[in-house]
Design a protein around this nucleic acid. Structure first.
Length: 219
DNA sequence: GCGACAG
DNA sequence: ATCTTGTCGC
């Protein structure tokens, strides 16, 4: 797919913060999906030495079979700073997405969406840049609080930050640590939860992210 | 000031 | 994220 990479990336957190404050206004948290959903994709990034390796895995939906994958390498140019993950990972992800022929209807992204201090986690940032429906799927908490969660698969609780529901804590498998789900772009929280569950037939993590994870970190 | 802190 | 083998439990 064609991707506009003509913009420059910030070199300081101050600059990055300003970009977040600007882009947060472009995020859409209502459903604007292209139906029917035929393809879902997972994206992830692995690091070694000073290189970033981004992986994209496009799966058919709802059967979740691999349709296409891509890998891209690029020097890591931004450090990991909580709240600024997107500036470290997105450049390589865009390179990998550029190589994909099948444009996914929904992307599942490792990390938070709106469950972010400035409501612009990596899923929102990436979503606004490529204008594709995207869901933030994080394995741990960045911000917010929530009530205790029942042990049954499918149960969830709203994730609250500054009196606002910014995401959901979702049990994707009984008796296992929950995932933190939030809107990235062009999808509502309830719909995001539905699709995450559809992509999680067997393990804690969605098939999309499991495959992308493996591609990004396999040796 | 102190502790927390996606990947 | 990454460093790392076997082992306990369903």
């Amino acid at each position: 797919m064609k991707i506009d990479q003509s913009h420059t990336w910030p070199s300081t957190v101050e600059e990055a913060r300003t970009i977040q404050e600007t882009l947060r206004n472009l995020v859409i948290t209502t459903d604007k999906l292209n139906t029917p959903i035929q393809h879902v994709a997972g994206v992830d990034v692995g690091f070694y030495h000073k290189m970033s390796r981004a992986a994209v895995a496009v799966l058919s939906f709802p059967d979740l079979q691999i349709v296409e994958t891509s890998l891209a390498y690029r020097p890591t140019s931004f450090p990991y700073i909580p709240g600024f993950l997107s500036f470290r990972e997105i450049p390589a992800i865009l390179d990998a997405l550029e190589k994909i022929k099948t444009i996914p209807d929904i992307i599942l992204c490792d990390g938070q969406g709106t469950a972010h201090r400035r409501r612009l986690g990596i899923a929102c940032h990436l979503g606004v840049l490529i204008d594709i429906p995207i869901i933030g799927v994080a394995k741990s908490l960045l911000i917010g609080k929530h009530e205790e969660l029942p042990e049954a698969k499918g149960s969830w609780q709203p994730l609250i930050h500054q009196n606002e529901t910014v995401g959901a804590v979702l049990r994707t498998r009984s008796g296992v640590k929950p995932l933190y789900i939030s809107s990235g772009h062009r999808i509502s929280l309830p719909t995001a939860i539905d699709y995450v569950l559809c992509c999680t037939p067997k393990y804690r993590l969605p098939e999309t992210t499991r495959i992308a994870d493996k591609l990004a970190s396999d040796r």
